[in-house]
Design a protein around this nucleic acid. Structure first.
Lengths: 204, 204, 204, 204
DNA sequence: AATGAATGAGTTTTCATTCAT
DNA sequence: GATGAATGAAAACTCATTCAT
């Protein structure tokens, strides 16, 4: 693991069909290897092999192992913000509970996002060049959430603090549920988590 | 990551004063380095240097890099279970809220308990050695929590599921607060988190 | 051959006996490998092996292959300037010719310097971070030479230009003689080169 | 330096117009890159890019990186022998000095003749392929020079040794002047170098 | 028991060369 | 012919671990 700092941003914007496919293949393989081996034990050669390509090709698209992590995280982050934004934007006072429940259900089913991957990577990337870029992520999520709650006429004494809390609460539970404990059935867990959220935001 | 790791359990139980001090020094240094660099980028030399000793000395007390992580995790786990158990065991229906608030406050101020560090380590260590040892940890915490709630006459439809939820909820918020966002003042955050917990466990 | 620029200056000032020996061993091995294989074909592993040590040790003392070349060149340069300075400082009008002859003889016998090595390295290092440091070398040689000629009461219309010329002339002939053509007997070549120099600096 | 080199002689004699142009373009680009980066750091991709073509095209005309160096060296060698031979063949005892001065001037201004480049390449190429081909080069130059001096009725005690000396002397000064020190004006340098040569070959 | 130089297997990374398009 | 993505052998470099002092 060389010491010298290297680029952690993608080497080039893939624009051709083939490139897109290559990047996708590599990211999928990297996801598998990162989740299976952990970041430290995942080697570029292993990732390339898992993707069925040569290391050289990997380096054609990513300048370093960290760059792969950064890209993966970027996609995760964007997917999550988009999903949460889309669902909450439809919330009204009347539908808030059901919207939250559906959103949580979707998150637990890991549709479009991969909490396991996220958990492996976040610590690495947080110490990386891409730190700053990533930093805005939770804020964006909180903003999206605060918007949704406002639209649903949820009244809170400190909406920002509550958004901060809720983002963590939901993500961590989703993460734990998906990664560590497949023992809890999704619907029950979604119900219970929804209950927790609703109890918090709707004073008795 | 050169050379495969061998033993991941401490080479010996240090009993002498000096040994104890050495181990403590090394663990503190390791904590700093792991948090600052991430597990993958933390080298044994860097840890030794941070502790002000030679690598050789490090290996006198820990048979491998992973063993350091394991020991750190072990202490974290034991400390946390003990703290939570001690506090909750005093809870009565009348004091539950205040006990929870105090516990959360303590966690937020805790020194030996560094969720950020342990999040990093768990990813690495859970995949290798010590997996088994660590595995029961969350269950123990949940059990301790469930006991506490039962003592406080908290009624829940699925106490286990609720314990699972609450453990995650509290730890993740504590972690985020400590690591990412020192912007929220501890007391306010503790209050709000307590409110969330209480709202969930005490139906209106 | 990695692209990223790395340090080309020695990683640390060797001060211990052992370190000194290690550095010396490595530089000698590097000299052999560079001369035998050429710069491009000389690998750090080959150099380490030739030195009878591990690659790791090589990198303990030199941060990169280029750094070895730079150090080698630095030593060559210093040795040469010192030798030329020492010899010429003794020159008087009466002894100039014999001093020059002796100096040339010494250079041809490669005592303390290694023109073959120099030839391999100069082109590489000239394109390196150490460029600037190395740049003063010829100037220093020229200055030393100009001093010597002045002491010997040599009269020239443009002493700087002549020093420039003479430095190149002598070094290139020495280099070619040592490296390419061991066919010319040293004494005859020294005589002839001396004749060339003397004919140039002492107008008829 | 990945992958061993194979052929080092041109894949084919380019006879079409287009091919000729392509070869010329590539050699010019290679010259620039070799001079700027050094042989070891010059990659085939960089050369191709500098030539404004793809790597594939490069390999259409040269079977290997070394083959480019060889071809460059071949052209250098042939051009130099031809130039020196042509100029010196016209020398008579009366015109020798002026012919030498003109030749030196031409070398200093020469474009296709780039001693700096060839110094880089010779180190690499002389150790690998083409060694044999290149070996006769200096001898040919020396022979051409000896012929010229004979025609000019220059009397020397060891004409071969003198030719050896003079070839090195002139080429090294030309090289240094072109590469390292653009500070010396061409005419003055040519004059002074001529003076050196003439002083040597024409005893007082 | 402490030290830190030495080791070398294991990584990351490069780049000459090929070949499908 | 031209292209440039893909290849993978080989290079550079790192770092967990050992062991002589």
């Amino acid at each position: 693991m060389p010491k010298a700092t290297r680029r952690a941003i993608p080497r080039k914007k893939p624009q051709q069909e083939r490139s897109q496919a290559m990047v996708a293949t590599l990211l999928e393989a990297a996801t598998r290897v990162f989740v299976k081996e952990g970041y430290a034990k995942a080697t570029t050669n292993r990732i390339a092999t898992a993707a069925g390509v040569s290391v050289g090709s990997l380096y054609q698209y990513f300048p370093s192992k960290d760059a792969i992590a950064v890209e993966l995280l970027r996609r995760y982050r964007d997917g999550l913000v988009e999903l949460v934004g889309a669902r909450l934007s439809t919330a009204t006072p009347a539908t808030f509970t059901v919207v939250v429940r559906d959103l949580i259900g979707e998150l637990l089913r890991a549709e479009g996002i991969n909490p396991a991957l996220h958990r492996v990577l976040i610590e690495q990337v947080l110490r990386t060049s891409a730190r700053k870029e990533m930093l805005g992520f939770e804020e964006r999520l909180e903003a999206v959430l605060a918007d949704g709650m406002r639209a649903a006429k949820i009244e809170l004494r400190d909406p920002d603090l509550s958004a901060f809390l809720l983002v963590r609460v939901v993500l961590s539970v989703v993460q734990s549920a998906v990664v560590d404990r497949p023992k809890y059935k999704t619907p029950e867990l979604a119900d219970e988590l929804t209950r927790l959220v609703v109890a918090y935001v709707t004073p008795p």
